[in-house]
Amino acid sequence: APSLQAPHPLPTLLSFRWALWFFKNDKSKMWQANLRLVTKFSTVEDFWALYTHIQLASKLTSGCDYSLFKDGIEPMWEDSQNKRGGRWLITLAKQQRHTELDRFWLETLLCLIGEMFDEYSDEVCGAVINIRAKGDKIAIWTREAENREGVTHIGRVESWAPPPFSLRRIYKEHLGLSQKVAIGYQAHADTATKSGSLTKNKFVV
């Protein structure tokens, strides 16, 4: 059983902390002015203290984001540690906001702070949840889009959480689209320069 006395440092403690960011869309301001650092943490206890005191993602208004990134990496493509990277992206159906979104996001957060991506956890920069009217999105951002081995290891989404909590499994079972639903990896460079609304997938799992 966890001890009450000693805080449990996250695996990342020696090199960095995690930082939670909040974005609220205010069109009268520049994009960056709408992005706020909420806090940083480095223990399991502080993670839960934060998680239980902030609004659930499903209760945010459309246009808002939460981002959890390693301290020192800003949640934007332009950051030097993101610009060559990309994201594994899950787009959720509208009705999933009230049934599964919060669980999916929590599972994603646990995978990040627990460093559950084996030797490729260093490739992970952070994760983002976008609350959007047309469909919410959850993404894991990685450092180097050309690192096929690392990206595909992270993208074997079963490793985001063991069965029966696998996001990929839950997602596909819920929608009953086992062969049609893909979780795609998109390079930020392609997302930034896209002409239409769709970005091509560099990898698919």
Partner: peptide, 20 residues
């Protein structure tokens, strides 16, 4: 190998009282 925490370990802390 690299140090990791699994989800069950992390979830054990979710509803623990916090010492302030």
């Amino acid at each position: 190998g690299k140090k990791q925490y699994d989800r069950e370990f992390l979830l054990d802390f979710q509803f623990m009282p916090v010492c302030i």
